[in-house]
């Protein structure tokens, strides 16, 4: 199974291939949103430490298919850490023991003989579709409620036509790296999407193009977040520690600052 890409590591690779890891997986199986799920135990043997976590699940699924069983449903797309689809809870931590996406988590982070618990994101706003796959369209609706700028179409303006201070552009870019994976919600003891919403509010709120809709944006996005049934933020910090992009808690403070300013300026959410 192991593909050694460079000669220098081939000896070590061959050795670990021969040994392989034997793992016990306890995976959440749930047929559809309407039934109750449960943890089911699977043994996976001869796992290469160079596999990603998703590749390990692929190996399990291949076997389940050959055995005539139902493969484990999990979301994934780019498998290069930028799309945010592959969120699962691994051993009680969003995306597992490393602060990255599940596709970028490699089996070398585990030891031979480990038991690994795999669960879907748990939040009433993220209903389980099947097994490990959840519906995160609540986050899309938060974006739809204000996470955009309204601009006329036409020729793209010159990049240097609207100057942005370096400090602001850096902070906005840091916030814009959010991939909407939902790890913040999954890790939050309150199942709050505050870090996600704060990243979007900060990203646009620091840009000159985001100013005209700044007040409406924050009140509408917070209202939509509450409407979706997410919890409230209690500034615990699990979100930021779980975020594969390292979005910081200061974004939440900035959202709160913007919201208070917007409410004082008379902005009210659209009902």
């Amino acid at each position: 199974m192991t593909i050694t890409q460079d000669g220098s590591r081939s000896t070590a690779g061959a050795a670990s291939e021969r040994r392989g890891m034997n793992l016990t997986l306890r995976i959440w199986r749930q047929k559809d949103p309407t039934v109750k799920g449960k943890m089911v135990t699977y043994k996976v043997s001869d796992v290469s430490p160079d596999m990603s976590f998703l590749e390990m699940l692929d190996v399990l699924n291949e076997r389940l298919i050959l055995d005539g069983d139902d493969p484990v449903a999990f979301d994934h797309d780019c498998r290069e850490g930028i799309c945010g689809m592959c969120g699962v809870m691994i051993n009680g931590m969003a995306h597992g023991p490393q602060q990255t996406t599940t596709c970028q988590l490699h089996m070398r982070k585990f030891k031979d003989g480990d038991t690994i618990d795999v669960e879907p994101w748990r939040a009433s706003a993220f209903p389980v579709i099947k097994d490990l796959a959840v519906d995160r369209s609540a986050l899309d609706r938060i974006i739809q409620s204000g996470g955009y700028i309204s601009v006329p179409t036409g020729t793209a303006p010159d990049a240097h036509a609207v100057p942005v201070p370096k400090k602001d552009s850096d902070a906005a870019f840091d916030a814009a790296t959010c991939i909407g994976c939902g790890a913040c919600v999954a890790a939050c003891p309150n199942a709050s999407s505050m870090l996600f919403t704060a990243a979007k509010v900060t990203h646009l709120g620091l840009m000159p193009q985001g100013q005209p809709e700044r007040n409406d944006r924050v009140v509408n996005m917070v209202a939509q977040q509450d409407r979706e049934g997410f919890g409230g933020c209690t500034n615990i910090g699990e979100c930021s520690a779980a975020c594969p992009k390292g979005i910081s808690m200061e974004n939440i403070s900035r959202l709160n600052h913007d919201l208070l300013g917007a409410l004082r300026a008379g902005a009210r959410p659209k009902s």
Binding site: R26, W28, M39, M89, N91, G92, M93, D117, E119, R122, A187, P189, I236, G237, E238, S240, A241, A242
Partner: peptide, 9 residues
Amino acid sequence: YVTKKAVAQ
């Protein structure tokens, strides 16, 4: 969650 670990709290 069946298993949940606190990382930062």
